[in-house]
Amino acid sequence: MEDLDNLYELFDQYFFNTLDETEKKAFEQRLSENAEFKEEYELYLDLVAGIKLASEDHLRQKLMDTDNTILPVKTSSFPRYLYLVAAAVAILIISSLIVVWITQKSSLTDEKMITKEQDKDAVPPDKQEKIIDKKEGQEKPEQKPGSDKTMNDEKYLAVNYYKEYYESYPNNLIPKSRGGIPEELLPRAMYYYDQKDFVASSEILATLYNSEPNNPDYLFYYAICQMELYNFKDAEKLFKKLLDSGNTKYQFQSMWYLSLAYIENKNFKAAGKLLEELAGTQNPYKDKAQSLLNEISQSNK
């Protein structure tokens, strides 16, 4: 057989499909007739496959190195059903404690209050000083050195508010499809929306919105999809656009979801303003807005 340099150059040409038709036919005929040639080509194919695998490993390592530069996603390894069990147990314990507290409330005497006072006296003098200072509002709560309110704290709070207050908005546009995937764009988008496939839904809603930018339905559900996909910057822009349009169909909904998007984007000031507006008027989000406002102001204390 010819020397390996020429042979591997020929293999490369066949592999990368740069041979002309005649050369290609000749190559394939040689493959079918010459066992040694075929064996050599099979080894070549394995070499190329192995090179690609090692190359992918190299690139994958680079991606993994990138992971270290990204903030971790807050998750829990706790299975979902255990949350339900934990919640049930917590409710049980809390209810029992309330019952015990109510029944024993009457037996709470001044004696206990006196004991508390004595306990307070037992605090070492240096700590007592701090307690007194705190009472007088001269000492701030203890914080980690060098941090006033760190980015991570804010992110953590934002994630918590979101988890606590975010609820998927129902599909009030198109009744749930019982058959297959609808042909028309809007029913199709809402079909995916019901399936919680917000990537597909968002894609179609974006098309609809671009073709009819003044349609509040398209804009609102497109914005909700962005919330579901955690694209809070885009969601913020879209809800603002809807509110600026002057169309009131989704006014309160947009204000509520926009405030959540603001919180996720760590713009607590803008969120507070919107929440105050919601809490101050009659609308379905009044109570939630007040409760969220209270929580934010509590955490700021």
Binding site: D46, L47, A49, G50, I51, L53, A54, D57
Partner: peptide
């Protein structure tokens, strides 16, 4: 064989 090539590479 491909796995060996991957490591040898």
């Amino acid at each position: 064989r491909q796995e060996i090539i991957r490591q040898e590479m």
